[in-house]
C-alpha cells in the first residue's frame, strides 16, 4: 500500500505481531497479527481508541515488551530474539520515549532529568541544547512540580531526543494536556522530526493530530485496520481538537 519501496530505508518491520496478556482467568489479545513498516525520517501517527493495542505496539517497538508471536525487525536486528541485555542496549542507544504522563523524575530538575539520559548515551547533545530545542532553556533548574504540564512534556521530549535517538516513540504525548499546550508539545515533536530527521511514531486516540503525520495508521482491536499517507502535512498550529 505504501508508496515508498526503498526497503533500505525501513527502520522497523513487524510480521504477524501478536501479543496476548494472561490476566489470570481471561486472556486479552492486545495484538492479533500486525504487519507494518516504519521508514527512516518519517513521522507516523498511530490512531486508535483505547484498548486497540497501540500502546502495546509502541512498547514492543521500543523494546519494552516482547511479543507473544511474530517478529519485529529493527534495521537488521530481530528484536524478538534479543536478550534482555541487548534490549536494554537498544533502548539506551537507539530509542527515545515520550510518555503520556511524562514520567519525569520528580526529584530531579529539568536539566537533570535530561542529564540522567545523556550520561549513559554514546553521543548525546548537551542537556541544555536539548531543552533549547523544546524552548525550555529558561527552565533548566526547575523541578517537575514547578513546571506546567506542557513544560513537563517538553522536558520529556528533550530527554527523549538528547541522546540523538534513531527513533522517537511518543505515547499519547498530549493526552494529559489541553489543546493549546498540546500544540506546543506537538510543535516540539515536529521540530525534532524535521530538524534532526528522527523517525517518529506518535500514538494517540485523538484523530485531530493525525493531520501532522506523513503517514497515519489506524489500529482497531489489535489489528492494523487502515493506513494512509497524508497528501498535505499540516503544521501543529493548524491542528485543532
Amino acid at each position: 500500500m505504501h508508496t515508498s519501496t526503498d526497503s533500505g530505508n525501513i527502520v522497523f518491520q513487524t510480521l504477524g505481531l501478536t501479543k496476548v496478556y494472561d490476566m489470570g482467568e481471561v486472556q486479552v489479545h492486545a495484538l492479533r497479527g500486525v504487519d507494518m513498516e516504519l521508514y527512516a525520517g518519517e513521522l507516523v501517527v498511530l490512531l486508535g481508541p483505547s484498548g486497540s493495542g497501540k500502546s502495546t505496539l509502541l512498547n514492543i517497538l521500543g523494546g519494552l515488551d516482547i511479543p507473544t508471536d511474530g517478529k519485529v525487525i529493527y534495521r537488521d536486528h530481530d528484536l524478538t530474539r534479543s536478550t534482555d541485555r541487548e534490549l536494554t542496549e537498544y533502548r539506551r542507544y537507539h530509542v527515545g520515549f515520550v510518555f503520556q504522563f511524562y514520567n519525569l523524575i520528580p526529584s530531579l530538575t529539568a536539566c537533570e532529568n535530561v542529564a540522567v539520559v545523556t550520561e549513559i548515551a554514546k553521543k548525546p547533545m548537551r542537556p541544555e541544547d536539548a531543552l533549547a530545542i523544546v524552548g525550555l532553556n529558561d527552565r533548566l533548574d526547575h523541578f517537575p512540580a514547578q513546571l506546567s504540564g506542557g513544560e513537563q512534556q517538553r522536558v520529556a521530549i528533550a530527554r527523549a531526543i538528547a541522546k540523538n535517538p534513531t527513533v522517537l516513540l511518543c505515547d499519547e504525548p498530549t493526552g494529559a494536556l489541553d489543546s493549546t499546550t498540546g500544540i506546543v508539545v506537538l510543535e516540539a515533536i515536529e521540530r525534532v522530526n524535521r530538524d534532526l530527521g528522527t523517525t517518529t511514531a506518535v500514538i494517540t486516540h485523538n484523530a485531530g493530530i493525525a493531520d501532522m503525520a506523513d503517514r497515519v495508521m489506524q489500529l482497531s482491536d489489535g489489528l492494523l485496520a487502515e493506513q494512509h499517507r497524508n497528501k498535505q502535512k499540516k503544521s501543529p498550529q493548524q491542528l485543532h481538537w
Binding site: 521500543g62 519494552l64 534482555d84 541485555r85 536494554t88 542496549e89 537498544y90 533502548r91 539506551r92 542507544y93 530509542v95 527515545g96 520515549f97 510518555f99 504522563f101 514520567n103 519525569l104 523524575i105 520528580p106 540522567v116 539520559v117 549513559i120 548515551a121 530527554r159 527523549a160 541522546k163
Partner: peptide, 16 residues
C-alpha cells in the same frame, strides 16, 4: 514504579 519504567525505557539496565 513509573520512574523505574522511564529509567529502564531510556536504557538503564535492571542492574543499574
Amino acid at each position: 514504579r513509573e520512574q523505574i519504567a522511564a529509567l529502564k525505557a531510556f536504557g538503564y539496565s535492571n542492574l543499574d
